[in-house]
């Protein structure tokens, strides 16, 4: 299979010189293109830390992460930012849209950072916002959108850069049931139809039920790595 994420022996230790606390402890994770996977576990188990390390937002104390064969752990900060821009999409629990930009601008902004031509940007913004069902809310700012709609814009933003995969940190945690279901439908559709790889950190049963692969973290260690309700595409 075509590996997108390869996390090798990842550890993250806080206070290494005094009382070491392992947020993540010697974790291996391997995701292939087209995976729809979930990292699950109780609060404080290290899901978000691991997700941040895979996304290049945090540096592991030990181990390294390869994205598409590129070891991102040793990249200098500016190259790492650039790498994230072109390869990784993020969806955050608190949506984290830029409040002064409209839905359209929030999505377009990423492509502007990538210096894509105007025509391409406009077409892709329309395509993505239509895909998440917000074609009629393009010129509305986040504050005027519901939580579910904001998270859909966040998904469109994450996909705008045509990333290798999307990391979604508790994407449904702040959503009502209906919005969460709608959001998961969209992401699942994008995964099935466009082959987009998704990795979630979640405790949400609805997400876990749809994941085709579920890795369970307890105290920073992967205790279980198994197919979800649908067969996993990875070994």
């Amino acid at each position: 299979m075509d590996a997108v994420i390869d996390a090798h022996n990842i550890s993250k230790v806080y206070n290494p010189d005094t009382i070491p606390v392992y947020a993540v402890n010697n974790v291996h994770l391997h995701l292939n293109r087209g995976d729809f996977a979930a990292l699950v576990g109780p609060s404080g188990s290290g899901k978000t830390t691991l997700l941040n390390i895979i996304g290049g937002l945090d540096i592991p104390s030990d181990g390294w992460v390869e994205i598409n064969g590129v070891n991102i752990t040793g990249l200098p900060p500016n190259r790492l930012i650039d790498f994230r821009l072109h390869n990784i999409g993020f969806v955050f629990q608190a949506f984290n849209l830029i409040p002064v930009l409209t839905a359209r601008e929030n999505v377009e902004f990423i492509m502007l950072l990538q210096k894509r031509p105007k025509k391409e940007r406009e077409a892709r913004v329309r395509e993505l916002l239509t895909a998440v069902g917000l074609e009629d809310k393009m010129d509305i700012r986040p504050a005027q959108l519901s939580g579910g709609q904001q998270q859909r814009v966040a998904v469109a933003r994450a996909l705008a850069s045509k990333p290798q995969f999307v990391l979604a940190d508790e994407p449904t945690a702040n959503l009502d049931s209906q919005s969460a279901t709608a959001l998961l439908d969209i992401m699942e559709k994008l995964n099935r139809e466009a082959g987009m790889t998704f990795l979630f950190s979640t405790h949400d049963r609805r997400v876990i039920d749809r994941a085709r692969r579920v890795s369970t973290l307890v105290d920073g260690r992967v205790t279980k790595d198994e197919p979800g309700t649908t067969p996993s595409t990875t070994a």
């Binding site: 650039d82 994230r84 821009l85 072109h86 993020f90 984290n96 994450a158 850069s161």
Partner: peptide
């Protein structure tokens, strides 16, 4: 947090 997100999604320093 907003600046953090901007940096996370690819806005360089």
């Amino acid at each position: 947090p907003e600046i953090g997100v901007l940096m996370a999604v690819g806005m360089n320093r």
